[in-house]
Design a protein around this nucleic acid. Structure first.
Length: 633
DNA sequence: GGAAGCCGCGCG
DNA sequence: ACCGCGCGGCTTCC
């Protein structure tokens, strides 16, 4: 049991005593920091209460309504002060408000985020809980990283009342409200001590430092948002809606003519028409036409269409249309009332590999392939006087794989600045490099990414057919696969080692208030920067699949790299006119003044190349930056 | 009527 | 027997 003493609450009554409190904080060198806001959106709401938990068990509470907004400037100075460690839970949230209140890019220093720390320490861990589904009797559940959960798990303290229930915009805050806010802040200091220890024991110091730094660019992306041409979006929606209606009518009338009758619905909703969104309807109709299909996924429908079924072909276009419409509507729905831009939320550690993810809307799944994708990307345009910079790492996961496996052929190819996909195409097709066509190169890219992650001859065959219409026998696919591993023998060797490593365990340290600090022997994977993902064992021990063992170090290192680049970039930015507006796994998006576009493009490229080439030495890392009027060019 | 699971599909 | 995400729609269950 960790000793936990309840502190005393000090209400700050004047600006002067707030300054004194900050002075005291500086003497201690660390504090717990929490902010209560009048709402969830930093562009609309503001900070109401600032709480500062000091190591001498005193919690200072500053009410903006009492002290005025000058305290916010002092707060900004505190979060930028490299001499004081600020322990915050979910710092992205609070710091977004601080940054928004100052209207400038703050250079946060020495932030310790207990939420990110918890996510680092439990990365990959999950529990199995019974599920109601007969198909999968067990479902995965990840540990809760809310402050309430951490206080309970690590300190045995129940923060019973959720502060979402409180109204922080009311004139008079009750003693109860203040007390609960103070409790939330008090737990931060002991939590930090626990996580700091775990981070060191698990060798995650560099990762923790990187994640804490990454809060800055993530805050910036959330606040800056991305510009969408709403008028053009609306007209594109109208256009596509008309097509959708037509497609539905075609599908339904054809089905009806051929005698299709939907299954009687147990509820209301009587319909005499086929529902193209219902896989059950689609399956039954196609089966009635004599196609023996078990699923209705696109690759199957494509085959059915190829054998002359117009319905399958129409359904495929219907699905594309309907998906694009859903996409366009979801973005249009989220135009922000204050600035008319879209503000996707980014999450640093929602994925087990360490990648960023994005939600509401997901900025990482904007259409990029297919004919009409460009038209959609063109809707994301730079405002007048601005340009977009889109910079992405070139073949980054292949370079990471070259580094990890130390495969001679790959290392040599990259050192000599060759195009790896082209090289693969040339070797597989036994043609000289300069005779490789663009299609062959694309196919080789597909093969590269398939095989380094453990793809079989069967999947190779399927993908060749589905993506390129290349008919390939299983024997041919197997031969291509064999030739691949002859050519890059280091990859096969590395894969064997990864599988072997799954049989070994490392002691990974955890903590809870009952057992204190304890360790479990777990299989785990590491990225180049040292990011660790563990696989929990139940009973006889569940191990990672070989595919995960191949993929996680590579994808995770990619995440390390893009985060490092974003942090370096953030630290180099001096002007408020530049905004980091997006991050898509291997790509960084900036919005910059038109007349400075060239400079920022080369600056970004230089940073990405430098950071990448340092981490992956001796593999050189290159990137490409484009200056664009819209995301679509 | 809401929650949870599944499927299919977009991105990297 | 290819990894990692989020989302929308359908279906099932409470």
């Amino acid at each position: 049991m960790s000793a936990f003493k309840t502190g005393s609450i000090v209400r700050i009554e004047s600006l002067k005593s707030w300054e004194e409190a900050l002075q005291e904080t500086r003497r201690f060198g660390s504090c717990g920091l929490d902010m209560e806001t009048t709402g969830p959106d930093p562009l609309i709401s503001g900070i109401r209460l600032i709480l500062l938990a000091l190591p001498n068990y005193r919690t200072c509470v500053a009410d903006i309504l009492d002290l005025g907004t000058e305290v916010l400037a002092l707060l900004a100075a505190l979060v930028e002060d490299a001499r004081v460690k600020k322990i915050i839970h979910d710092a992205k949230f609070g710091l977004s408000f601080v940054q928004a209140s100052q209207g400038r890019r703050l250079k946060f220093k020495k932030i310790f985020d207990t939420m990110l720390a918890s996510q680092i320490c439990w990365a990959g861990y999950y529990y199995l809980v019974p599920s109601k589904s007969p198909k999968n009797p067990w479902k995965k559940r990840e540990p809760d990283h809310s402050l309430k959960a951490l206080a309970e798990r690590h300190l045995g303290i129940m923060l019973d009342k959720s502060r979402q229930d409180y109204d922080w915009s009311c004139k008079h805050l009750t003693a109860e409200q203040i007390e609960y806010a103070a409790k939330n802040t008090e737990v931060l200091l002991p939590l930090e001590a626990i996580f700091q220890d775990l981070i060191i024991k698990n060798g995650q110091e560099k990762i923790a430092e990187l994640e804490f730094r990454t809060i800055s660019p993530v805050v910036e992306m959330g606040l800056s948002g991305i510009c969408l041409d709403s008028e053009a979006t609306k007209s594109l929606i109208l256009e596509k809606e008309a097509k959708l209606v037509e497609a539905v009518i075609d599908l339904q009338s054809e089905a009806k003519e051929n005698g299709f009758i939907p299954l009687p619905d147990n509820d209301s909703k009587p319909s005499y028409y086929l529902n193209p969104d219902s896989q059950e309807d689609v399956k039954r109709y196609l089966q009635s036409l004599g196609f023996q299909i078990i699923t209705t996924k696109a690759e199957v429908l494509k085959e059915v269409a190829a054998s002359g079924c117009i319905f399958a072909d129409r359904l495929l276009s219907y699905r594309r249309l309907s998906h694009q419409l859903a996409f366009l509507n979801s973005w249009l729905q989220r135009l922000h009332p204050v600035d008319g831009r879209i503000h996707p939320q980014y999450f640093q550690l929602h994925s087990a590999t360490g990648r960023l993810s994005s939600r509401k809307p997901n900025a990482q799944q904007v259409p990029a392939r297919g004919e009409d994708s460009q038209a959609i990307r063109k809707l994301f345009r730079a405002p007048p006087g601005k340009k977009l910079i889109k910079a992405d790492f070139s073949a980054i996961e292949m370079r990471i794989m070259a580094y990890l496996s130390a495969d001679e052929t790959m290392l040599k190819a990259f050192r000599e600045r060759q195009d790896l996909h082209r090289l693969t195409a040339s070797k597989i097709s036994c043609q000289p490099l300069d005779q490789v066509t663009e299609t062959q190169r694309q196919a080789a890219k597909c093969i590269n990414y398939l095989l380094i992650y453990g793809g079989s001859a069967e999947t190779l065959q399927q993908r060749a057919l589905y993506d390129y219409g290349i008919v390939m026998s299983l024997v041919e696919a197997g031969e291509a696969r064999e030739r691949y591993f002859e050519m890059y023998s280091g990859i096969g060797k590395w894969q064997m080692e990864q599988i072997e490593a799954m049989n070994y365990t490392h002691d990974h340290y955890f903590h809870d208030c009952v057992r204190g600090t304890f360790s479990l022997p777990l299989t785990c994977t590491l990225t180049v920067l040292g990011r660790r993902r563990v696989w929990p064992r139940f009973g006889t021990g569940i191990k990672a699949s070989k595919f995960q063992a191949f993929n996680t170090p590579c994808q995770g290192t990619g995440a390390d790299l893009i985060k490092m680049a974003m942090c370096e970039l953030y630290d180099s930015l001096r002007s408020e006119e530049v905004k980091i507006i997006g991050s898509i796994h291997d790509e960084i998006l900036l919005e910059v003044p038109e007349d400075r576009a060239e400079a920022y493009a080369s600056m970004l490229c230089e940073i990405m190349n430098r950071v990448g080439s340092e981490l992956l030495y001796p593999v050189p890392v290159t990137s490409e930056a484009k200056i664009l009027s819209s995301w679509g060019g």
